[in-house]
Amino acid sequence: MKITVRIWRQKNADSKGKLVPYELDNVSEHMSFLEMIDVLNERLTLEGEDPVSIDSDCREGICGMCGVVINGEPHGPENTTTCQLHMRTFNDGDVIDVEPWKAAAFPVIKDLVVDRGAFDRIIQSGGYISAPTGSAPEANNLPVPKHDADHAFEAATCIGCGACVAACPNGSAMLFTAAKITHLGLLPQGQAERDSRVLGMVEQMDAEGFGGCTNIGECTAACPKGIPLDVISRLNRDLMGAIARS
């Protein structure tokens, strides 16, 4: 296949970026999207140009390190991560636009690489269960109804990639935050800190400069792990309850 990629090039956080077109002749449909970029980078390197900076690690759709906006959609047209997107999704002659996540809370580091440290700080503000090592009771002392466990698991599959923020017209981190609130809030172990967790995490989310959620729902559509939208309602219920009690 022959394709043209227009890639966002930006030297560093302070400079202005722009889309730069590159033509690729021998793209195999079996390549992953990132392998296509690898091939381009090999060529740029040999031509003495700066290769495109792009994050990835596991390339299995689980670490959440990769993620770019492809043709205006976070992680591209398929419901998967950027690393699991394959070129067979595209057609010969296509022009593909590639841009980084854009959100005030995710400053660009270089080209397609952004800083998602804000997510870690949201977790620091309550996204955990305080269980010092060694203090745990026997695991089966605490049965968890399978339904709750499955539901908690579903929310826990969030990989922290940030596509939800990139998709949200408000740049809100609500889906990410709500997924964690749901995961921990559904388990009996998570009850003791339920109020302080939601208060702390929401406050941090605001402090990081994420937008407010107005329930648009783009986040769920972009999420490669299909984190369901009702987690947001659950967060709101917890939040109202916590405010009422505090």
Binding site: I129, A131, A136, E138, N140, P143, K146, A152
Partner: peptide
């Protein structure tokens, strides 16, 4: 043996049986 206890206490959502046990 302690690892499983520790992880469950932290909220790791291991697969469970219908009775709620691991």
């Amino acid at each position: 043996v302690n690892i499983i206890d520790q992880c469950v206490a932290q909220g790791v959502p291991f697969a469970r049986e219908y009775g709620g046990l691991l």
